[in-house]
Design a protein around this nucleic acid. Structure first.
Lengths: 258, 258
DNA sequence: GCTTCGCCTTGACCTTTATCAACCATCCCT
DNA sequence: AGGGATGGTTGATAAAGGTCAAGGCGAAGC
């Protein structure tokens, strides 16, 4: 295999600072962070690396330092359902605590990534000992829930070009003003095929739908670079089939746990 | 309007016992239950009664004593996205605590229902003061998350007849043996139109898809009564496009909060 | 009894998306 | 430069589901 499962150990450094920068751990003391980090492992993985499989026994949860990870499940005949595709700073695998200590989905690296893995045991004891942290955790889960609700909504109300438009809009910088005039340039963060799967459509449909979107909203597509000439037009086309107003940015899911 | 928004006050009685029977509150002491119930209101509402609207300020959360409630959001032009349809013993509206104290969806009664509403304040202080309860809450949210993940999966992998089949299977008693031979009779719990919306399809599609399902699996449909002659056949047809094995029953979502 | 209304079904037609197949572009490797 | 991945696009066709319009049917009301 080309994108084989390369994994290298990297000397842990500054991990505490990194963890603290994640909203879920915002309120943790230095001591607590230190506790969470006991037994931490930081690794670099190539595209295609399987972090864990659905149903496997869970001892660790994961934090993305950079890169992208997809969460999915698959049927007996190999069809995959993409549950989510996560960017840096996201946490995943931690819900195994609340199940029977097995992972409720599989997780695979889709863009070369640095991944931190931490013992679930420490997380669990922090939840149990610090009510404030439990509340953070709840807040984080509630955020994620809302993010998933939105996903369901998109699948029922938006068509393919609109789902792509929405995906693109959520890639614009978080502080973008809907009235913004000048052209905005964004880069697709991973393969188009993967984006298609993430949005619940076939690659062919994605390609064609992107074409329609281009025609309808004057965006320019060059490979994985997209230039939005007229933001308002894109918003008008996309968000008319959604219950949220523009600067939704996943309802700020930057602080989600998953 | 025919199904107008009737609401009657009902003398609260035995509410404590009812609350304790809900998994989320299982571990609560009698005293804690009593605290939660301070300011409780039990009401009966007719079909169509709007409990609260998306974005409204939230002071209370709700528990379904019986009947059915739909959670949804809508676009400016009136299209609704059904987020979920909840049966008795479910809790909803409680996530407002973790947002900005507004409801993240609208909630409407769809079958005459008895609904209990409780002050969010008391819930919040219980979470903060009792780490065990916070953990119950987390467990409950994690369950719900899984339930929503499954929903997304169904929408990407199952076609209309399969989604209906899955819906029917989840209505069979929880202890049903997949090998069960004798015919099983179930009743659709609410309008077919509503089920269609819940499953993300049009009423016409539902009607036709139910026809296909009937042909494919030898179920018998008479109004809202369905007789499953051959359970294995129904399972085979339905669950082949799903990552779960049969007795999924929403991964026992009886203990979800929403 | 008849009427009415809400709910459900059916038919005809159209749009959207999936599927199958071929082809192109790019990058990488040697 | 050539060969082979990989990823993306395009065309033809089919299937699934949505839309519009009409009609059936049963429960509730008169």
């Amino acid at each position: 295999m080309k994108h084989s499962n390369t994994a290298q150990i990297k000397p842990p450094a500054n991990l505490g600072q990194f963890l603290s920068s994640i909203p879920l751990f915002n309120a943790c003391t230095a001591k607590e962070i230190e506790g969470l980090l006991e037994g931490a492992i930081a690794e670099r993985h190539g595209k295609g690396y399987l972090l864990f499989s659905y149903g496997a026994e869970a001892q660790r949860y994961y934090v993305i330092k950079n890169g992208w990870v997809k969460l999915y499940r698959e049927t007996l005949d190999g069809a995959q359902a993409i549950i989510d595709v996560l960017p840096q700073k996201h946490i995943f695998g931690e819900t195994a605590i609340f199940e029977d200590n097995t992972y409720p989905y599989s997780a695979e690296v889709i863009e070369n990534a640095e991944i931190l893995s931490l013992p679930l045991k420490k997380l669990k004891s922090l939840i149990e000992s610090n009510p404030k942290f439990a509340l953070s955790m709840l807040t984080s889960m509630a955020r994620y829930r809302r993010h998933q609700d939105l996903e369901i909504e998109h699948r029922s109300l938006q068509n393919a070009p609109q789902r792509i438009g929405c995906f693109i809009l959520r890639l614009t910088p978080a502080h973008t003003d809907p009235q913004e005039k000048g052209p905005i340039t964004i880069h697709l963060p991973y393969d188009k095929t993967m984006i298609a799967a993430r949005l619940g459509m076939q690659p062919e449909t994605f390609s064609r739908a992107l074409g329609k979107l281009r025609q309808a909203t004057n965006i320019e597509v060059k490979g994985s670079t997209i230039e939005i000439a007229d933001l308002e037009s894109l918003i008008g086309f996309t968000c008319s089939a959604c219950t949220n107003e523009f600067p939704c940015h996943d309802i700020d899911c930057s602080s989600c746990s998953s």
